[in-house]
């Protein structure tokens, strides 16, 4: 067997998976998006741009997704970075593993159950009730964009912490000593050495969280109470409730396109920020 055949054989399972699970469904959705709604639900194949013309009707879903996904990603980053930094650089090695496990533990419980916990916390008898006691009245948290943001940050934090933790953990601590030796104060060492060398982790974490957030529907459904909905919720509605597959497909295709454009711009930005090509291609 030549090296070449062996390489192809090794790639075959992944390639087949990729075809079946990604390319084919995407193609089907793409074709459906030019169709029409069948009277009984489902789709009649055609070639019309009617569905795309109807997109403005779902503008709110796109608007919510495109604001809360970036804000959620950034907020998660701002909270995750100090946490990852503490775990990787400052934490006593003896406690490190335990602390890491504590970060993962919530992952073992279904997001559904954890969101219920938040419904209670943010609902009338939770935090607002506490605020009431100390004299701040009339605060409403549940079913607001804020509630959705809280849920997003909470749910996606581990996903952000881990890539950053890995890049900070493999950072050679002697580089920090070298920087200090050359006269840099600790915060300058952070800005000039630690932060640039953890950009691959930041980039990976943001990418992971952002892409998953664009397709999120559970958290807005539970904590947004039908008032704050994402494109994901629109898709659930169109495919499962109103059974308008053609329109749903047009919305889905638009979401994929928006995602591709954002990610491309994002990658460009990362290159500019100075991560080398290898760093980004890991993602």
């Amino acid at each position: 067997m030549t090296q070449r055949t062996r390489n192809w054989l090794l790639l075959a399972p992944a390639g087949a998976w990729f075809m079946v699970m990604l390319i084919i469904p995407l193609t089907v959705v793409f074709i459906f998006s030019f169709g029409e709604r069948a009277p009984s639900g489902g789709v009649v194949l055609a070639f019309t741009f009617e569905q795309y013309g109807n997109l403005p009707a779902r503008w709110a879903a796109f608007k919510n997704t495109m604001t809360l996904a970036p804000i959620g990603t950034l907020s998660a980053l701002l909270i995750a970075y100090p946490l990852a930094y503490f775990l990787a650089v400052k934490a006593n090695p003896k406690w490190k593993t335990i602390l890491l496990v504590l970060v993962i533990v919530p992952f073992w419980t279904s997001i559904l159950i954890r969101s219920y916990a938040w419904i209670f916390l943010l609902g009338g008898r939770g935090i607002p009730a506490l605020l009431d006691v100390i004299g701040i009245e009339g605060v409403r948290l549940i079913n607001t964009p804020f509630a959705v943001l809280v849920g997003i940050i909470y749910g996606y934090l581990p996903l952000m912490v881990f890539p950053i933790y890995v890049s900070l953990d493999k950072l050679d601590k002697r580089l920090l000593e070298a920087s200090s030796d050359l006269g840099a104060k600790s915060w300058k060492t952070f800005l000039q050495i630690t932060l640039p060398l953890s950009i691959p982790g930041i980039a990976t974490g943001c990418m992971l969280v952002f892409i998953l957030l664009m397709g999120e529907y559970l958290i807005p459904a539970m904590l947004g109470g039908g008032k704050v909905f994402f494109v994901g919720n629109a898709l659930v509605d169109l495919f499962l409730q109103s059974r308008n597959w053609a329109y749903g497909s047009a919305v889905a295709v638009t979401l994929v396109v928006v995602m591709l454009i954002t990610v491309t711009i994002y990658m460009r930005l990362i290159y500019r920020l100075g991560a080398s090509r290898e760093d980004v291609s890991i993602m």
Binding site: E177, S180, D181, G183, I193
Partner: peptide, 20 residues
């Protein structure tokens, strides 16, 4: 006195050069 205040410089065992 912290290292960054000392008029002393070090060549590290595996050099510890900044890779970026």
């Amino acid at each position: 006195l912290e290292a960054h205040h000392r008029p002393v410089n070090m060549v590290f065992q595996q050099y510890a050069l900044f890779p970026h």
